[in-house]
Design a protein around this nucleic acid. Sequence first.
DNA 1: TCAATTAAAGATAAAAATGTCTTTTATTAT
DNA 2: ATAATAAAAGACATTTTTATCTTTAATTGA
Lengths: 145, 145
Amino acid sequence: MAIFSKTCEYAIRAVLYVAHKTTTGNKVGIKDIAAGIDSPELYLAKILQDLSRKGLISSVKGPNGGFYINELSLSRPLSDIVEAVDGNGLFVGCALGLKQCSEVNPCPLHHQFKAIRDQIHAVLRTNTIGKFNEELVNGLLSLKK
Amino acid sequence: MAIFSKTCEYAIRAVLYVAHKTTTGNKVGIKDIAAGIDSPELYLAKILQDLSRKGLISSVKGPNGGFYINELSLSRPLSDIVEAVDGNGLFVGCALGLKQCSEVNPCPLHHQFKAIRDQIHAVLRTNTIGKFNEELVNGLLSLKK
DNA sequence: TCAATTAAAGATAAAAATGTCTTTTATTAT
DNA sequence: ATAATAAAAGACATTTTTATCTTTAATTGA
Ligand code: FES
Ligand code: FES
């Protein structure tokens, strides 16, 4: 098990790739994105269609079309992507799968995991989609392999 | 998405339940465990068979048989259960699904998530299976609902 | 207007995770 | 020995996740 679902991993990597490409050049096609983040093209298309419907990224059809991201979305936190794809279970759910995480009926890991959960949430809330563009341009960060 | 797979959630809850029952009374049957942690009985049976094969818990067949746990296993860390069921992906894998988490080819979340990952690992390594028995007896902690 | 391009949408498929059923084996008490 | 009990094992079923294929719709440029 990983922290995020495969779908969510692709989603985050793809959105960061689109952000990076948008700020340097222009729109970017699905084929380019899939190659850029090393993901199955047609599956990724589905994911991006979903994110597009939800307003996280934008797209236009036709020649010179493709995916891009607007200024406003660049400042949205990564948690928005995670919530859109995996829901908020990671942020509010019980570590051991109890129906309801609560102080009054805590599972054995409640106290220690609440802290970790909040930290995960904090990291994802405080990092914006646009935040990594510079380092992606510099090649200091990687989205594939 | 939750932190652990459903299978792993059941596994941890069940092992803690068996530990709790072993230290208070005696061996405990699969039916009792399933009811005690609110999980599908036959699925849980599979999981416990696996943990038994791997030596995390013990069992005996026949009348008055059931599952129990020995002193040694009581002192084992929860991370042993997680590794047995979900593997070590949570402890060593890349948050964004890159094939190899590394300092030289880090994903955008590498630095911040490495810290979190290590914390998760630390929590699971420092909490033993037997650690929660007292609070489980007191009813201060819950393994169901 | 037409052809080329590219994303959207819908249908299917494959794989993995989760859950159930049936038969077998070991153990115990009678 | 035999019957009852309870886990082990193996086969099967369902659901969810991941991935692919095909058709449609929108956009552009010639
Ligand atoms: S009750 Fe389990 S994490 Fe809160
Ligand atoms: S490279 Fe992604 S977490 Fe280390």
